[in-house]
Design a protein around this nucleic acid. Structure first.
Length: 543
DNA sequence: ACCTCAGCCAATGCCGGTCT
DNA sequence: AGACCGGCATTGGCTGAGGT
């Protein structure tokens, strides 16, 4: 019989023969010396961690003492998914009590640590309005203290959470991103994660409480690191001097700029000009559409041909606060691109009071910002109540049978509008979410299929994609965050999508050029189209 | 008869992009 | 800021081919 060298470390299959059963029993009850002899053969003279198979732990030891494994696991070499489970095994065995760990981190079904009460998703936000993550250098300390206040409030309300998580003993994995499953910078303070050092994460409609993988300071530094990387501001040398003009101050943190220049930096807007080289590859292929999109295409063509009721299809966009679902502006157009709705909203005081209940100034900042932005638009009527909007929709024939297309990743636009109308007593005006097609992802999928030479693809942001496809001289290019304009641009891109799905031979000559140029626009006309023609078609003059 | 390995698939988690 | 989605990488389970 050969030496069962692989059985100790990798007992994956138990033989059914009596002989091998006896051999296994022999191995299991064998002395430590025998185990060491096996390890010497298979693991370069060292003993593998006994949880090697379960948690892919690659740690090796000189003897069977596993204290060293703890420090290896805590923040150095294992994958994020593996190390908490691994630590759990060690702690549970060594300390003799059962420990519950965040299911997300543990990667398995662990019953503890879960709070089953069914709370609505916004419940925690309304209870703990102070807890905001920030990348603002001046607000990091305030941010930390708001995390702690929020944790305390949560623990008072859910003592169960304290019992489940408090003594887990997990270590922070440090401020740097994980690279190839390896933590590249150890936490400078070696902090332990608990409810005084880390922000409790509440997920799944308040069903689950989790501990994050970084403590406060490392979390903030990690967010900051990601922002620097995103804006290409990461410094190369550790002790870099600010790269600002005539500035010799030391660079702040890991950036290229000193603190003053960082605070003054206002970001670089995403320019569609950066992507002009990707236009040709993006439009070179024939795009594909799934069943839901093809249905909308058929409806669009049928409505344009007059074979279907004109109210069967609408393109919708809102300016609204997704946190409160308060709507500030509604834009809608039909299958021929004619504007059918372009209103700012007027809420009943009772509805507004419900929305604003329990919200402080900081929490309503978003509302003020959107309100200020939409005030600059010239809508058909300055303000319309839910009743007036509902009446106008009914007059136009919009009903629960109407289909909607939005430039979004969910059906949130339609549901927010429907909920506002219903909250003010207007029922059976709009359909349920099943009749809404968020078309952005469908188009993005087609863009991803055709990367440029440098591997990049066109972003699906309306502010980039629209001028790229329709031309920067188009009357609607560059006019972002106006509901009526965005609804109309969604209509245009849906038309482009429809044509792109046809074989090149089946597309009319000059189809794209005709979409790019408004009626009456000539090739020789060099001046940029103004928004005036758009409002003129919409039935009013620009103000 | 068993082990190792590669390939496939589903589940999971991180990350970037997008919306308001 | 926060929610959500898709892309991508990783992981684990399963299966079959090939080697011992």
């Amino acid at each position: 019989m050969s030496e069962p060298a692989t059985l100790v470390g990798c007992p994956t299959r138990l033989t059914t023969t009596l002989v091998l059963r006896q051999m296994w029993i022999t191995v299991i009850i064998s002395s430590q010396a025998e185990a060491s002899r096996h390890a010497n053969v298979s693991h370069h003279g060292k003993i593998p961690c006994r949880y090697r198979t379960e948690f892919s732990c690659e740690a090796l030891f000189e003897n069977t003492q596993e204290e060293g494994c703890m420090s290896t696991v805590m923040g150095h070499l294992l994958s994020i998914a593996a190390w908490p489970s691994h630590a759990r095994m060690h702690l549970a065995d060594d300390e003799g009590y059962d420990i519950a760990i965040d299911r997300n981190l543990a990667g398995g079904d662990i019953d503890g640590g879960m709070i089953q009460d069914d709370y609505p998703i916004n419940y925690f936000d309304s209870c703990f309005p102070l807890a905001k993550t920030t990348s603002d250098l001046e607000e990091i300390e305030a941010c930390k203290s708001s995390f702690q206040k929020r944790n305390q409030q949560l623990l008072r309300e859910f003592p169960q959470a304290r019992r489940d998580h408090e003594f887990v003993g997990l270590k922070c994995i440090g401020p740097s991103p994980i690279v190839n499953r390896i933590v590249t910078t150890v936490c400078p303070n070696g902090s332990t994660l608990d409810y005084t050092t880390a922000k409790i994460k509440v997920t799944g409609h308040g069903e689950c409480f989790k501990l994050p993988i970084r403590y406060f300071d490392c979390e903030v530094n990690y967010i900051f690191h990601r922002l620097l990387k995103k804006h290409k501001l990461l410094g190369k040398a550790k002790d870099q001097i600010c790269s600002g003009k005539n500035c010799f101050q030391p660079a702040c943190r890991q950036s290229q700029l000193c603190k003053d220049h960082l605070l003054a930096w206002r970001g670089s807007p995403m320019e569609f000009a950066d992507y002009t080289g990707l236009r040709a590859p993006a439009l070179a292929n024939t795009w594909v559409a799934d069943e839901s999109v093809r249905f909308v295409f058929d409806l669009l063509l049928s409505t344009q041909a007059g074979n279907t009721n004109g109210s069967d299809l609408r393109f919708l966009d809102l300016e609204f606060n997704p946190r409160t679902k308060r709507i500030f502006e509604i834009g809608m157009c039909d299958a021929k691109g004619d504007l059918t709705l372009d209103y700012r909203t007027r809420y009943q005081p009772e509805t507004l009071a419900i929305i604003n209940h329990g919200r402080d100034t900081k929490n309503t900042y978003m509302d003020h910002a959107i309100d200020r932005s939409t005030k600059g638009h010239h809508c058909v009527d300055s303000r319309m109540s839910a009743r007036q909007v509902a009446d106008r929709l009914r007059e136009q024939g919009v009903s629960p049978r109407t289909w909607f297309v939005t430039w979004h990743h969910t059906t949130l636009n339609l549901s927010a509008l429907r909920e506002w109308l219903e909250s003010e007593g207007e029922f059976d005006v709009l359909p349920d979410d099943g009749r809404c097609l968020p078309i952005m992802h469908h188009i993005r999928r087609n863009l991803k299929v055709a990367p440029g030479d440098d591997g990049r693809t066109v972003p699906a942001a309306l502010s980039v994609l629209f001028p790229l496809v329709m031309g920067s001289q188009h009357e609607l290019a560059g006019r972002n965050h106006h509901a009526a304009v965005d609804a109309h641009r969604t209509y245009h891109l849906t038309e482009v999508y429809l044509m792109q799905c046809r074989r090149p031979a089946d597309r009319p000559d000059g189809w794209l050029e005709s979409l790019q140029k408004p009626e009456g626009w000539t090739v020789g006309q060099q001046q940029r189209q103004t928004i005036k023609s758009f409002w003129k078609k919409a039935g009013r003059d620009e103000q």
